[in-house]
């Protein structure tokens, strides 16, 4: 393999990983956009999505696309319930209370999964739902079918999200609530429904990310959501939290950067670099790449 071939292969690896980060980051960013909450339990929704996919496939033995849809629906439900039970009562509480609740929820979800005998603490192999075949892009550079699936599904979902947010009534309501909750309510928008919908949407995307991740890398475990969850958070901040295109771009940049670091032989510094990026972006451009510099109103 020449250097150029290696660079191209690592770029492909990075984009595949980045698109999973982007799917999770979208949930972070939408929830932040609408209720100014960093939902740290979001990484666990990603994990639950992967496990939901695992159980759907092992129990019903159905192909990947219906599995994706079912698992996304299940996680959308989890997202709604999570918001109603944990965050809604705290909507007018200090922001730190909701943040701590999110951290607590994250722990709760992980430990619940360990508690369930069917999941447990040891890793599980994700069933092989698609044949992993290789397509040669150029000599020695491959696109595998799982990576193609990841990219295609991620792009489709992002396009769908874009459509929902900009071309539907619910999307309009979401944008209105994120601008001014009280004014939106005065205009007759059901704020509770809108917030629930946002959680459902974000959680469904995380579930899709979880399944794509599991199909690609073959292993699922109860704590698989914590690292990708944090990385997706970094992606969302990098792109500008609250901005939907920002989450996608942030995810891609982070995925590619991580692969570049590993490719250069510093795989041990990969996580450290991801969080160094977070610190640097917060110091230099806290609003992120796509973020607007909103001044706090007094």
């Amino acid at each position: 393999m020449t250097l150029a071939q290696q660079v191209l292969q690592q770029l492909i690896n990075g984009i595949a990983l980045g698109s999973v980060y982007a799917l999770i980051a979208l949930g972070y960013t939408m929830v932040y956009g609408i209720i100014r909450l960093i939902n740290f339990a979001h990484g666990e929704v990603f994990m639950i999505g992967a496990f939901a996919g695992y159980f759907i496939i092992t129990l019903f033995n159905i192909p990947i696309v219906p599995t994706l849809i079912l698992a996304m629906a299940f996680c959308a439900l989890i997202g709604i319930v999570m918001e109603r039970l944990a965050y809604k009562p705290l909507r007018n509480a200090p922001r730190i209370a909701a943040l701590m609740t999110a951290v607590g929820l994250s722990n709760l979800f992980q430990n619940l999964m360990v508690y369930f005998k069917a999941v447990g603490a040891s890793p599980k192999a994700f069933p092989r739902v698609i044949d992993i075949s290789r397509y040669e892009v150029m000599q020695d550079v491959y696109l595998t079918s799982d990576k193609i699936l990841t990219l295609v599904v991620a792009v489709l979902l992002m396009v769908a999200l874009q459509y929902i947010v900009h071309n539907t009534k619910m999307g309009k309501a979401m944008r209105a609530v994120s601008q001014d909750k009280d004014a939106a309510q005065l205009m007759g928008i059901n704020v509770n429904t809108t917030i629930s919908f946002t959680f459902a949407l974000g959680s469904a995307l995380a579930a899709a990310g979880g399944i794509l991740y599991a199909v690609s890398y073959g292993k699922i475990i109860y704590n698989m959501g914590s690292m990708p969850g944090l990385k997706a958070f970094v992606s969302a901040v990098l792109g500008g939290i609250g901005s939907i295109p920002g989450a996608v771009v942030g995810g891609m940049i982070l995925g590619i950067t991580e692969n570049a670091i590993s490719a250069a032989g510093y795989s041990m510094l990969r996580d450290a670099v991801a969080f160094a990026i977070l610190i640097i972006i917060l110091l230099i451009k806290p609003a992120g790449i796509f973020g607007k510099n909103v001044r706090e109103k007094v």
């Binding site: 393999m1 290696q6 690592q10 990983l17 890398y217 704590n223 490719a263 795989s267």
Partner: peptide, 20 residues
Amino acid sequence: EESYLESDIDFSAILTNVKA
């Protein structure tokens, strides 16, 4: 000689190095 952590699930980057 490549390294990873127990929590890692994606090995594609280090495997590309090994392949080369």
